[in-house]
Simulated assay, not measured.
Amino acid sequence: MTGDPLADLSAQGVSLWLDDLSRQRLHSGNLKELIDTQHIVGVTTNPSIFQAALKDGASYQKQLDELAARGASVDDTVREVTTDDVRDACDLFTSIFEKSGHVDGRVSIEVDPRLAHDTQGTIDQALELAKIVDRPNVLIKIPATVAGLPAITKVLAEGVSVNVTLIFSLDRYKAVMEAYIEGLEQAKEAGHNIAEIHSVASFFVSRVDSEIDKRLQAINSPEARALEGEAAIANARLAFQAYEETFAGERWEALAAAGANKQRPLWASTGVKDPKYDDTRYVVELVAPGTVNTAPEKTIEAVADHGVIRGNTIDGTYGQASSVFSSLEALGIDLDDVFAVLETEGVQKFEQAWGELLESVQAELDKHKK
């Protein structure tokens, strides 16, 4: 180990992406500095991130003024503003994209969260966003809802790279990997170069502990207390086991022979929600080659300051991770309900953030109509 935890993380084969983007970060040189000094090799965005970025409206004022003068609708305004930021970020990451063989240097933009249960609407907007951003290193984010799964396959089949988001359960993750493989098979059949199609599967971490800990605290037995803070990391480790099992065997080998890339597991929601836990745990406990960790800047700073990278912390943990889930079920924790609640809340949070974003942008546009 080098004494630089972020360098150690990269050396272990983990790609560190920043879970944030704003025009202020782009124009001030802050994002470039993070790339140069903090081993950042990609960016993820979501509706909450854009909503927060546009709250600090100064960086966007000139463009909002121009769009208002043009009579642009609120939806068109938000689309133009967000895709401009993502395109500029893609350009900033071009050299990393090229150096990494098109694996990293990726920037994600999400379809409108109001389309989470609309398959065709998701497909149409995903393809439109890919066209508008028009950069080879963009990833289009599609939620792993039941309606999202066929959309993922179809968008991949069109040769568009996808970040699948809001994955909480192992069963849904397995369905996501199946959707990816089907998409590659269809893309290959359609004559696309599947070596140029990339994907990550965003498996959410900290929110699992938040929901399960709440239920364990309600039980309030010594057995329940002993399991607090165990579920999220165990869940992610079992997801990695499923990834290893899926990207093996004849079906996958046939695609790999045609140049296909594995869909990398991406650990999302890695900022610690409960202050009683170590603020680096969802990074340092999920180290394995070929993974991505997308983290807020606060978490990245914590890892840089006092994170201890101990090598691969997933290999050899599957038995222990399985026993955590057996123990949770023995206590009566309804895991299916946990994951259903988390997905519903995840979609609602993004819908709410999107609604607030539209409201604030509409207010800006209205100022110019008076």
Rank of each mutant, 00 (worst) to 15 (best):
I35D: 06
G355S: 15
D171I: 11
V160K: 03
G346N: 05
R207H: 04
I197M: 08
E359S: 12
D76N: 12
T94A: 13
I314R: 00
E228D: 09
L255G: 08
E301H: 06
V347D: 08
M177F: 03
K370G: 11
T246A: 15
K276E: 13
T82R: 00
A258S: 13
L342S: 07
L127I: 09
E297W: 13
G71C: 11
V138N: 06
L166D: 07
V138S: 09
L357Q: 10
R135F: 04
A260D: 06
K131S: 13
E98R: 12
V103K: 06
V361L: 06
S108W: 05
A330G: 10
I142P: 02
Q12R: 13
E66Y: 02
G3F: 07
K62D: 15
L227G: 05
A340W: 01
R114H: 12
I49T: 02
K262M: 12
Q352P: 01
Q120P: 02
D88T: 15
A218N: 11
S48G: 06
A363F: 03
I96D: 00
E80K: 09
M1E: 15
D76K: 12
V284M: 06
L166E: 09
E230W: 04
T291P: 08
L127K: 12
R135Q: 14
G148C: 10
I219N: 11
L64M: 15
E66I: 12
D209N: 14
A147Y: 04
F203A: 09
E364R: 13
V41D: 07
V164A: 03
A288P: 02
G57C: 02
